[in-house]
């Protein structure tokens, strides 16, 4: 096992939140006799991440990705278990630890709104004890990689969302952290900006052998960057491995692409499986893996099939399904809607 930068063992976080019934009576009761419920945001999660790895956290909204990131960066105190990041216990928030990590959040910004990004960079340089020359050199290097050299002197409020995110990245990486935690770093950006941020992260990882842990709703971020993914579902880690492996574990179904000689009504096709798309005479059907043989026989027997192909569904679709449905089958697999 190569040197681990992140070690997590049985990490858990339970929140206590109050529950409120709807309506005025509910409001009154909520005020006088508040009821609480324990929410297990993260339950007994364990994993190790080696130096230089790029790992993606996947999971539906509220699955516990962000809470895990926040525990690893020392923002949130774990309820149970332990974590070590870059040789430190995150929640102690020791200076040496904080100087070696960074967290970028797509939905929060640290840049001063009314001033040019350069002002925030100067403050960060002072906080991380960088001397003038080092700070200048790093700003030059990073802004060139991010292609924002000419944007640093404009007030942040005048920048586009993509430019602002790039400046955020620059501000978060000025101290050259070894471990990068990125929470939805491409949130809301257009395709070009997403692409250039991905390219930048890849280059940063290569140049500095930095470890990157990221969450994203854009599968393209994950497929472009991560060799390994951790799938989190309802606070529990249910998969840890290569992205491709998700197919075998969570896609107990195949995609059947068939071209028909004559038009057939949707209802008829739906008897054989979920219709993923229809274009002219070509239809893509989702079929359970164990039903593939039987369904094929039926299709050939009952419909005027002229061409037929069987494929694995694209990974985006499987993960998207996991996100959408937010629930997994009993044997821990995603259930396609059965006909």
């Amino acid at each position: 096992m190569p040197e681990a930068v992140i070690e997590v063992e049985a990490l858990g976080k339970t929140y206590r939140t109050s529950v409120k019934q709807p309506g005025f009576r509910g409001t009154l009761r909520h005020y006088f006799r508040r009821q609480y419920r324990e929410i297990e945001a993260v339950r007994s999660v364990s994993f190790r991440i080696a130096r230089g790895e790029v790992v993606g956290f996947l999971g539906a909204n509220g699955a516990g990705k962000t809470t895990t990131l926040k525990m690893l960066t020392g923002l949130v105190h774990p309820t149970s278990g332990r974590a070590r990041v870059a040789g430190h216990e995150p929640f102690r928030r020791e200076r040496e630890f904080l100087e070696r990590i960074t967290l970028v959040m797509g939905n929060k910004q640290q840049l001063l709104w009314d001033l040019p990004a350069l002002e925030t960079l100067r403050i960060n340089a002072a906080i991380y004890r960088l001397d003038e020359a080092t700070a200048q050199a790093r700003i030059a290097e990073l802004s060139e990689l991010l292609e924002i050299q000419d944007k640093l002197r404009e007030p942040v409020r005048k920048l586009s969302l993509g430019e602002r995110m790039k400046c955020e990245l620059l501000a978060a990486l000025l101290h050259r952290p070894e471990v990068l935690f990125l929470d939805e770093p491409t949130l809301g950006l257009d395709v070009n900006a997403q692409d250039s941020i991905r390219g930048f992260l890849r280059e940063y990882n290569r140049r500095h052998r930095a470890t990157i842990v990221l969450t994203s709703h854009y599968m393209a971020d994950i497929t472009a960057l991560c060799e390994r993914v951790l799938l989190i579902h309802r606070g529990a880690l249910i998969y840890d491995g290569e992205l491709r492996g998700i197919l075998e574990r969570f896609a107990p179904y195949r995609e059947v692409e068939l071209t028909l000689d004559a038009g057939v009504a949707d209802e008829v096709l739906e008897r054989f499986g979920e219709v993923a798309s229809r274009k002219g005479r070509t239809t893509r059907l989702i079929v359970r893996r164990e039903d593939v043989t039987r369904t094929l026989q039926q299709l050939l027997r009952e419909l005027p099939v002229s061409d037929l192909a069987i494929k694995d569904p694209p990974i985006e679709q499987i993960v998207g399904r996991l996100f959408r449905e937010g629930s997994l089958g009993e044997e821990g697999s995603a259930e396609p809607r059965t006909p």
């Binding site: 200076r95 904080l98 967290l103 960060n124 906080i127």
Partner: peptide
């Protein structure tokens, strides 16, 4: 939630 940024600074 911007307290996060403050807590992340050394």
């Amino acid at each position: 939630g911007t307290l996060d940024f403050v807590l992340l600074k050394p």
